[in-house]
Protein backbone atom coordinates (compact mmCIF):
# COMPACT_ATOMS: atom_id res chain seq x y z
CA UNK A 1 0.00 0.00 0.00
CA UNK A 2 2.78 2.36 1.01
CA UNK A 3 4.94 1.51 -2.00
CA UNK A 4 1.97 1.83 -4.36
CA UNK A 5 0.99 5.24 -2.96
CA UNK A 6 4.60 6.47 -3.20
CA UNK A 7 5.31 5.39 -6.75
CA UNK A 8 1.90 6.65 -7.88
CA UNK A 9 2.82 10.05 -6.47
CA UNK A 10 6.25 9.92 -8.11
CA UNK A 11 4.62 9.18 -11.48
CA UNK A 12 2.24 12.14 -11.11
CA UNK A 13 5.04 14.45 -9.94
CA UNK A 14 7.38 13.39 -12.74
CA UNK A 15 4.59 13.84 -15.30
CA UNK A 16 3.84 17.34 -13.99
CA UNK A 17 7.51 18.29 -14.03
CA UNK A 18 7.96 16.91 -17.55
CA UNK A 19 4.95 18.93 -18.69
CA UNK A 20 6.42 22.12 -17.22
CA UNK A 21 9.84 21.48 -18.75
CA UNK A 22 8.22 20.67 -22.09
CA UNK A 23 6.41 24.01 -21.97
CA UNK A 24 9.61 25.78 -20.97
CA UNK A 25 11.62 24.49 -23.93
CA UNK A 26 8.74 24.68 -26.38
CA UNK A 27 7.99 28.33 -25.58
CA UNK A 28 11.65 29.28 -24.94
CA UNK A 29 10.95 30.49 -21.40
CA UNK A 30 13.72 31.61 -19.05
CA UNK A 31 14.59 29.99 -15.73
CA UNK A 32 12.70 32.83 -14.05
CA UNK A 33 9.36 31.55 -15.38
CA UNK A 34 10.12 27.83 -15.23
CA UNK A 35 13.49 26.69 -13.84
CA UNK A 36 15.49 24.20 -15.88
CA UNK A 37 16.33 20.71 -14.58
CA UNK A 38 19.76 21.80 -13.37
CA UNK A 39 18.36 24.72 -11.39
CA UNK A 40 15.61 22.53 -9.92
CA UNK A 41 18.25 20.03 -8.85
CA UNK A 42 20.45 22.77 -7.35
CA UNK A 43 17.48 24.20 -5.47
CA UNK A 44 16.55 20.71 -4.30
CA UNK A 45 20.04 20.22 -2.89
CA UNK A 46 20.03 23.66 -1.26
CA UNK A 47 16.69 23.47 0.53
CA UNK A 48 15.96 19.76 0.79
CA UNK A 49 16.79 19.41 4.49
CA UNK A 50 15.12 22.62 5.59
CA UNK A 51 11.96 21.94 3.58
CA UNK A 52 11.80 18.35 4.86
CA UNK A 53 11.81 19.67 8.44
CA UNK A 54 9.18 22.29 7.51
CA UNK A 55 6.98 19.62 5.92
CA UNK A 56 7.23 17.39 8.99
CA UNK A 57 6.28 20.38 11.11
CA UNK A 58 3.23 20.98 8.88
CA UNK A 59 2.32 17.29 8.84
CA UNK A 60 2.40 17.09 12.64
CA UNK A 61 -0.07 19.99 12.88
CA UNK A 62 -2.20 18.45 10.10
CA UNK A 63 -2.40 15.12 11.96
CA UNK A 64 -3.47 16.88 15.16
CA UNK A 65 -5.94 19.01 13.21
CA UNK A 66 -7.39 15.92 11.63
CA UNK A 67 -7.83 14.23 15.02
CA UNK A 68 -9.58 17.33 16.35
CA UNK A 69 -11.84 17.46 13.30
CA UNK A 70 -12.71 13.76 13.54
CA UNK A 71 -13.70 14.22 17.19
CA UNK A 72 -15.70 17.33 16.36
CA UNK A 73 -17.43 15.81 13.33
CA UNK A 74 -18.30 12.66 15.31
CA UNK A 75 -19.73 14.66 18.21
CA UNK A 76 -21.81 16.92 15.97
CA UNK A 77 -22.79 14.02 13.72
CA UNK A 78 -24.12 12.12 16.74
CA UNK A 79 -26.02 15.16 18.02
CA UNK A 80 -27.34 15.99 14.57
CA UNK A 81 -28.57 12.46 13.83
CA UNK A 82 -31.67 12.97 15.96
CA UNK A 83 -34.90 13.91 14.26
CA UNK A 84 -35.71 16.24 17.15
CA UNK A 85 -35.70 20.07 16.95
CA UNK A 86 -32.24 20.16 18.51
CA UNK A 87 -30.86 17.58 16.09
CA UNK A 88 -32.25 19.55 13.19
CA UNK A 89 -30.86 22.80 14.60
CA UNK A 90 -27.35 21.31 14.94
CA UNK A 91 -27.53 20.04 11.36
CA UNK A 92 -28.66 23.38 9.92
CA UNK A 93 -26.08 25.31 11.95
CA UNK A 94 -23.30 22.95 10.83
CA UNK A 95 -24.31 23.34 7.18
CA UNK A 96 -24.51 27.13 7.47
CA UNK A 97 -21.06 27.41 9.00
CA UNK A 98 -19.71 25.55 5.97
CA UNK A 99 -20.75 28.43 3.75
CA UNK A 100 -18.07 30.73 5.18
CA UNK A 101 -14.81 30.60 3.26
CA UNK A 102 -11.90 29.94 5.56
CA UNK A 103 -9.81 32.75 4.06
CA UNK A 104 -12.46 35.21 5.25
CA UNK A 105 -12.53 33.71 8.73
CA UNK A 106 -8.75 33.37 9.01
CA UNK A 107 -8.04 37.03 9.85
CA UNK A 108 -10.60 36.85 12.68
CA UNK A 109 -8.99 33.67 14.00
CA UNK A 110 -5.64 35.38 13.71
CA UNK A 111 -6.82 38.38 15.76
CA UNK A 112 -8.34 36.13 18.42
CA UNK A 113 -5.56 33.55 18.66
CA UNK A 114 -2.51 35.34 17.30
CA UNK A 115 -0.04 33.64 15.02
CA UNK A 116 1.47 30.25 15.60
CA UNK A 117 0.49 26.75 16.52
CA UNK A 118 -3.12 27.17 17.73
CA UNK A 119 -4.14 29.21 14.69
CA UNK A 120 -2.67 26.62 12.35
CA UNK A 121 -4.42 23.84 14.24
CA UNK A 122 -7.81 25.56 14.24
CA UNK A 123 -7.71 26.39 10.52
CA UNK A 124 -6.51 22.87 9.62
CA UNK A 125 -9.30 21.35 11.69
CA UNK A 126 -11.92 23.67 10.18
CA UNK A 127 -10.98 22.86 6.59
CA UNK A 128 -10.78 19.15 7.28
CA UNK A 129 -13.91 19.03 9.42
CA UNK A 130 -16.60 20.00 6.88
CA UNK A 131 -16.44 16.98 4.54
CA UNK A 132 -16.01 14.67 7.51
CA UNK A 133 -19.09 16.14 9.12
CA UNK A 134 -21.18 15.64 5.97
CA UNK A 135 -20.31 11.96 5.86
CA UNK A 136 -20.76 11.41 9.60
CA UNK A 137 -24.10 13.23 9.54
CA UNK A 138 -25.20 11.19 6.52
CA UNK A 139 -24.16 7.92 8.17
CA UNK A 140 -25.61 8.73 11.57
CA UNK A 141 -28.93 10.03 10.21
CA UNK A 142 -29.60 6.88 8.17
CA UNK A 143 -31.19 4.09 10.27
CA UNK A 144 -30.10 0.50 9.62
CA UNK A 145 -33.70 -0.67 9.89
CA UNK A 146 -33.18 -4.43 9.71
CA UNK A 147 -30.77 -4.44 12.68
CA UNK A 148 -32.09 -1.55 14.75
CA UNK A 149 -35.65 -2.93 14.58
CA UNK A 150 -34.62 -5.99 16.63
CA UNK A 151 -33.09 -3.94 19.42
CA UNK A 152 -36.00 -1.53 19.44
CA UNK A 153 -38.72 -4.16 19.83
CA UNK A 154 -36.69 -5.97 22.52
CA UNK A 155 -36.27 -2.66 24.37
CA UNK A 156 -32.46 -2.85 24.34
CA UNK A 157 -31.78 0.12 22.10
CA UNK A 158 -29.57 2.86 23.60
CA UNK A 159 -28.06 5.81 21.77
CA UNK A 160 -24.56 4.35 22.06
CA UNK A 161 -25.78 1.14 20.43
CA UNK A 162 -27.50 3.08 17.66
CA UNK A 163 -24.25 4.95 16.91
CA UNK A 164 -22.27 1.70 16.95
CA UNK A 165 -24.64 -0.07 14.55
CA UNK A 166 -24.60 2.79 12.07
CA UNK A 167 -20.83 3.21 12.29
CA UNK A 168 -20.21 -0.51 11.80
CA UNK A 169 -22.54 -0.77 8.83
CA UNK A 170 -20.73 2.14 7.16
CA UNK A 171 -17.24 1.42 8.38
CA UNK A 172 -15.73 1.31 4.91
CA UNK A 173 -17.28 4.71 4.04
CA UNK A 174 -16.00 6.22 7.29
CA UNK A 175 -12.43 4.91 6.97
CA UNK A 176 -12.29 6.05 3.34
CA UNK A 177 -13.36 9.60 4.22
CA UNK A 178 -10.93 9.74 7.15
CA UNK A 179 -8.05 8.72 4.85
CA UNK A 180 -9.22 11.20 2.20
CA UNK A 181 -9.56 14.02 4.69
CA UNK A 182 -5.83 13.83 5.41
CA UNK A 183 -5.31 15.76 2.16
CA UNK A 184 -7.67 18.45 3.40
CA UNK A 185 -5.97 18.61 6.79
CA UNK A 186 -2.64 19.12 5.09
CA UNK A 187 -4.09 21.71 2.69
CA UNK A 188 -5.76 23.46 5.63
CA UNK A 189 -2.52 23.64 7.59
CA UNK A 190 -0.68 25.01 4.56
CA UNK A 191 -3.37 27.67 4.06
CA UNK A 192 -3.06 28.59 7.75
CA UNK A 193 0.70 28.86 7.47
CA UNK A 194 0.32 30.96 4.38
CA UNK A 195 -1.90 33.41 6.21
CA UNK A 196 -0.82 33.33 9.81
CA UNK A 197 2.27 31.45 10.86
CA UNK A 198 6.01 31.68 11.13
CA UNK A 199 6.71 28.02 10.52
CA UNK A 200 5.85 25.10 8.28
CA UNK A 201 6.06 24.43 4.59
CA UNK A 202 3.20 26.86 3.82
CA UNK A 203 5.28 29.67 5.30
CA UNK A 204 8.28 28.60 3.22
CA UNK A 205 6.10 28.57 0.09
CA UNK A 206 4.96 32.10 0.88
CA UNK A 207 8.57 33.29 1.07
CA UNK A 208 9.41 31.46 -2.18
CA UNK A 209 6.44 33.18 -3.85
CA UNK A 210 7.73 36.57 -2.71
CA UNK A 211 11.01 35.68 -4.38
CA UNK A 212 9.29 34.33 -7.52
CA UNK A 213 11.23 31.11 -7.02
CA UNK A 214 9.32 28.29 -8.72
CA UNK A 215 12.24 25.90 -8.07
CA UNK A 216 11.65 26.13 -4.32
CA UNK A 217 7.92 25.67 -4.81
CA UNK A 218 8.56 22.50 -6.84
CA UNK A 219 10.74 21.15 -4.01
CA UNK A 220 8.03 22.03 -1.49
CA UNK A 221 5.40 20.25 -3.60
CA UNK A 222 7.60 17.18 -3.75
CA UNK A 223 7.90 17.05 0.04
CA UNK A 224 4.19 17.66 0.55
CA UNK A 225 3.27 14.94 -1.94
CA UNK A 226 5.62 12.35 -0.48
CA UNK A 227 4.67 12.96 3.13
CA UNK A 228 0.97 12.96 2.30
CA UNK A 229 1.30 9.70 0.36
CA UNK A 230 2.98 8.03 3.33
CA UNK A 231 0.44 9.40 5.79
CA UNK A 232 -2.54 8.37 3.65
CA UNK A 233 -1.11 4.90 3.16
CA UNK A 234 -0.76 4.58 6.94
CA UNK A 235 -4.35 5.70 7.45
CA UNK A 236 -5.63 3.24 4.85
CA UNK A 237 -3.62 0.47 6.48
CA UNK A 238 -5.00 1.39 9.92
CA UNK A 239 -8.56 1.57 8.53
CA UNK A 240 -8.28 -1.83 6.89
CA UNK A 241 -6.90 -3.29 10.13
CA UNK A 242 -9.76 -1.88 12.22
CA UNK A 243 -12.27 -3.21 9.73
CA UNK A 244 -10.72 -6.70 9.75
CA UNK A 245 -10.61 -6.84 13.54
CA UNK A 246 -14.22 -5.75 13.86
CA UNK A 247 -15.30 -8.30 11.28
CA UNK A 248 -13.22 -10.99 13.03
CA UNK A 249 -15.04 -10.15 16.26
CA UNK A 250 -18.25 -11.08 14.42
CA UNK A 251 -19.54 -7.54 14.29
CA UNK A 252 -20.92 -7.85 17.80
CA UNK A 253 -22.05 -4.27 18.15
CA UNK A 254 -24.14 -4.91 21.24
CA UNK A 255 -21.19 -5.90 23.42
Amino acid sequence: MLARRTYQFLIVYAAGLALLLGLKYLAGLSDYVIPGPLLVWQTFRDVYGRYAADTLNTLSVAVLGQIVSICLATAIGILGRQTTWFGNFVKVAAYNVQAYPIVALAPIIFILLGDGFITRLVIAAMICYFPLLLVVLGVMSEPVVEIEHFYRITGRMRWQLEVKIRAFENLHKLTTVVAGSATLAMAGTIVAEFIAANAGIGYSIRIALYQSDLGKILVALFHIGISLSVYQALLEWAGARVQRRWEAAGGDVAS
Binding site: S30, D31, Y32, P35, L39, S212
Partner: peptide, 13 residues
Protein backbone atom coordinates in the same frame (compact mmCIF):
# COMPACT_ATOMS: atom_id res chain seq x y z
CA UNK B 1 14.10 43.15 -7.07
CA UNK B 2 11.79 41.28 -9.48
CA UNK B 3 13.70 42.68 -12.47
CA UNK B 4 17.09 41.81 -10.96
CA UNK B 5 16.00 38.31 -9.93
CA UNK B 6 14.54 37.73 -13.40
CA UNK B 7 17.72 39.00 -15.06
CA UNK B 8 19.76 36.64 -12.87
CA UNK B 9 17.72 33.76 -14.29
CA UNK B 10 18.10 34.80 -17.90
CA UNK B 11 14.76 36.53 -18.38
CA UNK B 12 14.77 38.94 -21.36
CA UNK B 13 13.11 41.72 -19.35
Amino acid sequence: DQVIRAAAKGSPV
